[in-house]
Design a binder for these strands. Structure first.
Lengths: 189, 189, 189, 189
DNA sequence: TATGAATGAGCGTTCATTCAT
DNA sequence: CATGAATGAACGCTCATTCAT
């Protein structure tokens, strides 16, 4: 048999793509991505049929990473506030620790190269605990009077505010993450 | 005797740029923008030295529009909550009423074609009343324990959540704008 | 006003295209064609929207040249044989004198980059006298018992045979053209 | 102990090549040809050193098929007209029955990927009876005054005319083949 | 021998920018 | 000043061929 497709190369391409998107947006060229992954330009296309497919796979990968991180050690039996704080902290820490991946993820999420089909493929994997927690939040506090989905948007939005602030005051990261949650929780209480 | 540069043409180019960015992202070509503004390709470059400059000017213009709207009829003497609600409502309505401009504004804001210099030039124009109001909010509620700037980020972020939701439930626009503020205000109270 | 599109450049591109197609078939690259015409790669596309359009225009141009040559000094009032010989001789001489154009024309004619629409645009211009003559031939001799169009195919085919032979015996060009017609005429008599 | 190269695979590749050339011209990719032959991309190159070699071999194969068909049941002792008609009919029927092979053969014949050496190798295999017959025709009728080779070109050319016409009127195939020969024979008589 | 991943030159086309008119 | 033709680098993608397995 011929050489097998190397998972390492696939990963290298995905990582390079995230890096390039963070640096220059969705206009990031396949040539640069390939060079960043240390493979030939053509090789990129043996792993991903097109730039669009690469970007969809990357989005999946990135979202998957966050969900995997949240689900690991999820405090299923704890109070809602504890569970909410877990979701908040884990996803926020991922964003802060991997700023390039986060930037890429946001850009992809906003664009329309990421298809509806891709977006749908995400949750079905293991969105479970997160969704359950957000659902409970949505039924409380101010969110009770707002459509479902608003609570999730609001959490994401408040996390953006924290990330912005951490970018300016990196030393206070831990405090910001915690106080940020307290702010968010005021709305849910 | 050179003809004077026409402000109408300048405006037409800026508007066409916003439209094109909303439609196809920052990859929008100068040729399309020029055609959209009904001027020749080359003419664009007599008004803006480069695509980057055009985009920076557009960002300024867009942000300026919002501030101008907020400042018109600003209730300087009202309570903080009333003033905050005014800022919230006016800027949010602008976003909702002019989705293309907003989309362009977001895309530009996220990218790095908009320079730090441009970002700094914004407020200096007429950020006055808004800044004062946000400053007061930052000294209250949860924001008291968070760095300055967090309150502003949080408001913007919460507005994004409202916009997202309005996009899905356009009929409930008025309610969402109001309840959204109530949610935000819980953090400031 | 800006620089006007130059008919010379257009012609240069068409000629270069014919040359390149003759040399390397329809795979001839736009880059080589542009270089052959001494214009920049991009310039080709200001004259022709795509490679396909260029090739269709070239086909039209080439067919037009032959028809123009036949129609000039066409002996409208002469006998059928004289008129037929005129068509035969003029078109054949064009083919022999301009071997590259002929090669390109054949390749294009056989391929399907030349659209039906293009093929239809040809005759309407001035196929007149030729068509009339071929029509008369089709009603005579062996052709009487064969479908319309066969006579035209046969003339073209017999011309190919002459061209093949002239290519091997260029000295006898004049005789071959004449005797070739005599051979063809045997079928029509 | 190396496995022997399989003649079946060789044939499958040649057939797939003919099919692909008929469908998409000489630009047909080796990858598609390999897939069409149900072998791996690399395997193609263990049977043929390069795409050009494959195409030359294919041309030989295709021409060989026609000659083999003509030579089978060749009426060696019949009159010239009968023998000529046999050559005409058999080769023409091959073209009509196997349109893909014919299309490929024409495309290859016109291009210059088929080398002079290949063209020369053809007849030497078994052109015998055909050549003899064409030689006799060349010494008669109009062909007497034309160079050797013209008769052969003329026959091929007239066959092209028949094929063109059959393509438009498939129902009349049999009549066209016969009447076409009559037309050709007028020149030879 | 058979496989198909790897390669990088080359493809048709787009584009920001320049500059002759 | 306004125009749009001209430019060539860069783009996403394909391909014949090589070679590790």
């Amino acid at each position: 048999m011929a050489r097998a497709k190397s998972p390492e190369k696939r990963q290298a391409i995905l990582q390079a793509a995230a890096r390039e998107i963070a640096a220059s947006g969705l206009g990031a060229s396949t040539a640069k991505i390939a060079k960043g992954a240390d493979v030939a330009e053509g090789t990129l296309f043996t792993y991903f049929a097109s730039k669009d497919e690469l970007f969809n796979e990357l989005y999946l990968e990135l979202k998957g990473e966050v969900y995997r991180r949240i689900n690991a050690e999820f405090p299923y039996k704890a109070t809602l506030q504890v569970r909410a704080r877990h979701v908040w902290t884990e996803s926020l820490n991922w964003s802060i620790e991997r700023p390039e991946e986060r930037k890429a993820s946001v850009q992809l999420g906003v664009s329309d190269v990421v298809t509806v089909a891709t977006r749908e493929r995400i949750g079905s994997q293991q969105r479970g605990a997160v969704e359950e927690t957000l659902g409970e939040i949505a039924a409380r506090g101010v969110f009770k009077d707002l459509p479902p989905g608003f609570a999730a948007s609001a959490m994401g939005a408040m996390q953006d505010a924290v990330i912005d602030t951490v970018a300016r005051k990196p030393r206070q990261k831990a405090v910001l993450v915690e106080k940020g949650f307290d702010a968010f929780w005021r709305m849910a209480k």
